Simulated assay, not measured.
Amino acid sequence: MLKINNISYKYHSDHWIFDSIQLNVNPGEVVGIYGPSGVGKSTFAKVIAGYLKPDRGSIIVNGKVSPQIGRNPVQLIGQHPEKAINPHWRMKQVLAESGEYSDGFLSELGISKEWMHRFPSQLSGGELQRFCLARAIAPETSYLIADEMTTMLDAITQAQIWQTVLLLVERRQLGMLVISHELPLLKQISNRILNFEELARAI
Rank of each mutant, 00 (worst) to 15 (best):
A146W: 06
L153S: 09
V178I: 13
I4P: 08
L194A: 00
M149G: 02
G104M: 04
V25M: 12
I17C: 15
L95Y: 09
R130T: 03
N86W: 07
L199A: 02
I7D: 04
S37Y: 05
L52M: 12
P67N: 10
H88Y: 15
W89E: 14
L153Q: 06
V178E: 04
Q188S: 15
I161F: 10
L185W: 06
L153A: 12
L199E: 05
P87E: 14
W16H: 14
G28Y: 10
G57K: 00
R71K: 12
S8T: 13
I69L: 13
D19C: 09
Y9N: 05
A134D: 10
K53V: 15
I77Y: 08
G32W: 04
I137H: 03
E140S: 02
S190Y: 00
W162K: 00
W16I: 05
P120M: 11
Y101E: 05
V25L: 14
V94G: 08
K187M: 11
E170Q: 15
E170C: 03
G63H: 13
F105W: 08
Q79R: 05
R201C: 08
S112T: 02
E170M: 10
S58F: 00
I145N: 02
E100V: 08
I4Q: 06
E127A: 10
Q160W: 00
L2H: 03
A159I: 11
I145Y: 06
Q129H: 07
G32H: 05
M149H: 11
M116Q: 15
A136F: 06
G125E: 09
M176D: 07
S112Y: 07
A136E: 09
W89K: 11
I77W: 09
G110V: 13
K53R: 14
K92E: 15
L133D: 07
D103E: 12
P139V: 03
S58R: 04
V39E: 07
E198H: 04
G126D: 07
P81N: 12
A155C: 08
L168S: 07
S42D: 06
I21F: 07
N72W: 02
V178H: 11
R172S: 06
L174Y: 08
S102K: 01
K92T: 14
D147C: 02
G110W: 04
L76N: 13
L183D: 05
Q188G: 12
T157N: 08
Q188L: 13
N195M: 01
W16F: 15
